[in-house]
Design a protein around this nucleic acid. Structure first.
Ligand SMILES: [Mn+2]
Ligand SMILES: [Mn+2]
Ligand SMILES: [Zn+2]
Ligand SMILES: [Zn+2]
Lengths: 147, 147
DNA sequence: AATTTGTAGAGAATTATTATCCATAACGAG
DNA sequence: CTCGTTATGGATAATAATTCTCTACAAATT
């Protein structure tokens, strides 16, 4: 069973055990989120979902994303222009954002993040509850295509 | 001479040597930015400036902030709801944002940031051009006022 | 199948920011 | 100092992501 298949069933189970209803719209959005290896925005999800559900509205996408956020199963990455969503790692983690192709990648930096969080709490007496760490630059692919 | 006085004159000098005109509105906004020890938003600056310049419009605040950004003298901290601006440290640096009183503090973490940036570049081959590192939680003051 | 109640969809509303347009003020030249 | 050029301020409309409101309908449970 693929990872995305497992994640899909995990999310469906979570909805089922909650008080929330399992509507076709939600099932499809969850399928898309679980299948996505990237970090889609609400409108990107909306465009994808319109293929299968032409009547689905953008507001419903937002509502469902809010629901999944409340359940702690989706991380919102609130950028300046719009938000993107990570349904596979629903806890704060660093992101690498390419300024050329706009791709968003996960930064696997558990240890470094743990250290810097600890340093902030010790040096400033600031209690950290969450964080958003965004690194902007050029991804490996876009570096090659110089110019 | 106070720090903010020095910063004020520095910014004025920068405008003067550029092609840009020194209007009373710009001078006052620069004064406010240099005097501010925090990280004001456009509307906060607007509310302050209205006292001296009742006719000043919010659009002008945005235009002047854009100008100072172009000159590399102001850092925009683009949060989800609105942007805040740092006119004293106009280069990327971490911020500690209190979720209770909304205060934004500078995180003095030069070394840790340098290390994590280096780690990203080495581990992922990602070339970092800038970053936005926001830590959300409770400031020391708000921790005391428990409840 | 009937009943209850949460949810989808349409569209309006909100809010930060940006664009447009023109009268006017800044500033260098004379 | 005065003038003329031109950038800039102010008013207002436009934009765009997100949220709100309302109602018909569908999901779950019996
Ligand atoms: Mn991610
Ligand atoms: Mn700062
Ligand atoms: Zn790229
Ligand atoms: Zn606080």
């Amino acid at each position: 069973m693929s990872d995305s298949q497992a994640r899909f069933e995990q999310l469906i189970a979570k909805l089922r055990t909650s008080e929330y209803r399992l509507t076709p719209q939600r099932v499809e959005l969850i399928r898309l989120i679980a299948a996505s290896d990237g970090h889609p925005s609400a409108s990107e999800l909306y465009n994808q979902i319109k293929v299968q559900f032409p009547t689905m509205s953008l507001a419903t996408v937002y509502k469902t994303l809010d629901l999944l956020k409340e359940l702690g199963e989706v991380l919102e990455i609130g950028l300046r222009d719009d938000s993107h969503y990570d349904g596979n790692k629903p806890y704060p983690h660093p992101h690498l954002i390419c300024m050329k192709c706009q791709k968003i990648m996960d930064g696997e930096l558990e240890l470094a993040v743990k250290n810097i969080v600890q340093e902030v709490e010790q040096n400033f007496g600031f209690q950290i509850l969450k964080h958003q760490l965004d690194f902007y630059g050029l991804c490996p692919d876009c570096q090659k295509q110089k110019e």
